[in-house]
Simulated assay, not measured.
Amino acid sequence: MLFWNMCLLTQSDLKRIFEQVDVNGDGFLSLEELNRLLQMTGNSHYTIQELESLVEQKTLGFTEFLFFYKSISEQKNGESIGGGGGGGGDAEELENDLVKTFKVFDLDGDGFITSQELESVLKRLGMWDETNGKDCRSMIRFYDTNLDGRLDFQEFKNMMLLSKA
């Protein structure tokens, strides 16, 4: 759930995601639809049985989806902050999560995220709305420290960690 944690998602962003993932438009996310969303965000390590055990029901309305998002976010934040004993494990887990998330956005696998790739993924997640003024080129330019017009992994990592603060 790193993508969800590190990007500042508003309730309206989550509503758009919910509606995009609710393929049949019935106002509920089936476990299959929820699993598809998790796979789209690079979190495909859940089976349908694990999801059912986690959410304790077969479908989620929007309110339950918000609760699911909040509980997963809090769980991740608690792991990062509270981390028991090992010290280095949290940093390594964060780095691994960032690599997975980077790969979600790096659609062509060339090691860089372009504004077109960023826009494409945001559209796929239902988070792109031109009327909201979200401009991927501006986002890329803001974090593009070497001014090549795209984000390498280190620039992406800086963006994700700065946006979380």
Rank of each mutant, 00 (worst) to 15 (best):
C136I: 07
V99K: 00
L107D: 14
D97T: 05
E95N: 13
K76Q: 02
R36A: 15
E33Q: 14
Q154R: 05
E56S: 13
F112A: 13
M6I: 12
C136S: 06
V21M: 15
G78V: 07
L122W: 13
V21N: 10
K58C: 09
L14D: 03
Q49C: 04
D106K: 09
G109T: 02
F105Y: 12
F65N: 02
G86C: 14
G83A: 02
L34I: 00
T41F: 06
G109W: 02
N24D: 08
D129M: 10
M127K: 10
W4S: 15
K123V: 00
Q11E: 15
K58I: 12
F156G: 04
G78D: 02
L107E: 13
F153K: 03
G111H: 03
G25I: 03
M6A: 14
G111E: 08
D26N: 07
Q11L: 00
K134M: 00
I81V: 06
Y46D: 09
T47P: 12
V104S: 03
S80C: 00
R124M: 06
E56A: 04
D144L: 11
I113D: 06
R16A: 14
I72S: 08
N24H: 08
D152G: 08
K103E: 07
T59K: 15
L107G: 01
L147Y: 05
L162V: 00
F65C: 09
E119D: 03
A91M: 11
G82S: 10
L94R: 08
E92M: 15
K58A: 09
K70V: 15
E79V: 07
E33L: 04
E119W: 00
E117R: 03
L162K: 01
D129A: 09
V21W: 13
E93A: 15
K123E: 07
G86I: 11
L2C: 11
K103I: 11
F18S: 06
D22S: 07
E64K: 07
F18P: 08
V23T: 08
D26K: 01
